[in-house]
Design a binder for these strands. Sequence first.
DNA 1: CTGAAAGCGCTTACAG
DNA 2: CTGAAAGCGCTTACAG
Lengths: 304, 304
Amino acid sequence: MEVARELNYRVDKNAAGLRSRHSNTIALLLFEDSSTDESQINPFFLSMLGSIARAAAASDYDLLVSFQQLSNNWQGRYEASNRADGIILLGYGDYLNYGEKLRALDEGGAHYMIWGPTIEQHDGRSLGCDNVSGGRQSTEHLLSLGRKRIAFLGDNSPGFPEFRARYFGYEAALKTAGIEPDPSLQRDAENSENAGYIAVQSLVLGGADFDAIVTCSDLIAIGALRALQELGKHVPEDVSLVGFDDIPAASYVNPGLTTIRQDTLRAGAMLVDNLIGLIHERSVASALIEPRLVVRRSCGGHPR
Amino acid sequence: MEVARELNYRVDKNAAGLRSRHSNTIALLLFEDSSTDESQINPFFLSMLGSIARAAAASDYDLLVSFQQLSNNWQGRYEASNRADGIILLGYGDYLNYGEKLRALDEGGAHYMIWGPTIEQHDGRSLGCDNVSGGRQSTEHLLSLGRKRIAFLGDNSPGFPEFRARYFGYEAALKTAGIEPDPSLQRDAENSENAGYIAVQSLVLGGADFDAIVTCSDLIAIGALRALQELGKHVPEDVSLVGFDDIPAASYVNPGLTTIRQDTLRAGAMLVDNLIGLIHERSVASALIEPRLVVRRSCGGHPR
DNA sequence: CTGAAAGCGCTTACAG
DNA sequence: CTGAAAGCGCTTACAG
């Protein structure tokens, strides 16, 4: 050992991996919407990246990071070639497209964890925040402030199960309050400022009557805020606004954005822990992480 | 080839790496200031991470990402163990501490690129933005708006060569305008909102007379902005403010932050290209990337 | 140009 | 419990 230290000996990773059949490496695949421009990575996933990197390091795993298009052919690239022992999939995007890819991973016997939607057939291999609860919390907050005509921005189609679950929470909160959801107050929006901006324009220019907006992400909310302000609507006086995620930008905009905070630190740690469990063939359960309301100034009523 | 395709054959990375003595992998080490809290990663480096990931993928290299403390023992972990063919080092932090680490890398024959300061002894292995030019540009912008008493926030000691270079640019611009830099208008600040906040408090509470501030980063500027506003100073009416980096938050704060934009897309691509050059024993030159002024509302004079 | 052999540096399974 | 041997799956250098 002393001599080894003197000679600065290091175990050759390739040789060790070849013999022992594992690499002690996790591959993190980030899927970007093809719509977003190159330089802009979703800040929420960036925050997840940080906590995943920390969690992997804590478990002595190396982390391979790669940005992908969902359409790319990435299924075999990592585990089949023994580059990584397991894969973490991060990204919105149409989950219907995932089906085929996940089947390919399954067939290859790959170990993987998906962040986001709870997928029935992939029990234990998905982890997400409780989106229904998040949608309910933001809606209840607006209701508690006396708002009644609450719009919803986010694509609630089956291809976007996370946004859809948030919509279900919104719907449930309204119904509990005796309010029937009004479809004319819903607008599809993907996760971008621009989508939020356009959705609000469509709402206002379409003559919709609303006093609050629940959004599916802070990015959408920030775009919505900009549109509202340009159209002469005051936030929160005329319209209350709630985001989702609590990305750093949420606290920088004016007024500060009330939002639903996702615990990325916990999420990253659980993704890594569960994946390592799967790698070691332990049985692992899917789980939901509870998000929580963070009150700033965009809804009024509460001081910062 | 057909059979291989049918059987979904993949080359085993470990075996290939063992035999051919290279891994086609780059390790990206991000150094965090011990001072910043866990969850908050410098947004500028996060943006670099994105462009490095893209550039590595474009050159068919895998990217290993790791967050480190500068004090950790990371020198041998990557290249000596054949995990990676080369290393990219990203981070502020006291570069005086780097010396020893870099020597260890050199002794091990490692290939590496450092982002940031130009280090004489490591020609070709460092790449940075032209910080002197950046500091000069922001100061000249303020001078052109009629500002005369321009404060400077950022640690300008030798341990922080990037901030120091920005200070030199500030100094040069002032002298060219016939103004002698006033040391009582300079405050050390590390790269954080909190440091900017405290520095402005110290300036104002110390009775300093200033009508503009040049900062070494957007994070510092955002903290400074908050302090100014809390102390009843209007930006830009009473005090003009310039940031550095152009992180996403710069456009979210109110007023939008005029800043010096670093071209992270180009920087990431050049870091990767130069590193691959070093790996292939090609000779590579150090370079400076020219930053450019982005005008928003925090200096006044110019409309958004 | 083609094809078989050597060997990269480990870890594990096995013989003593 | 200890120590020597086998072999992981490639790529390269070499023989034909």
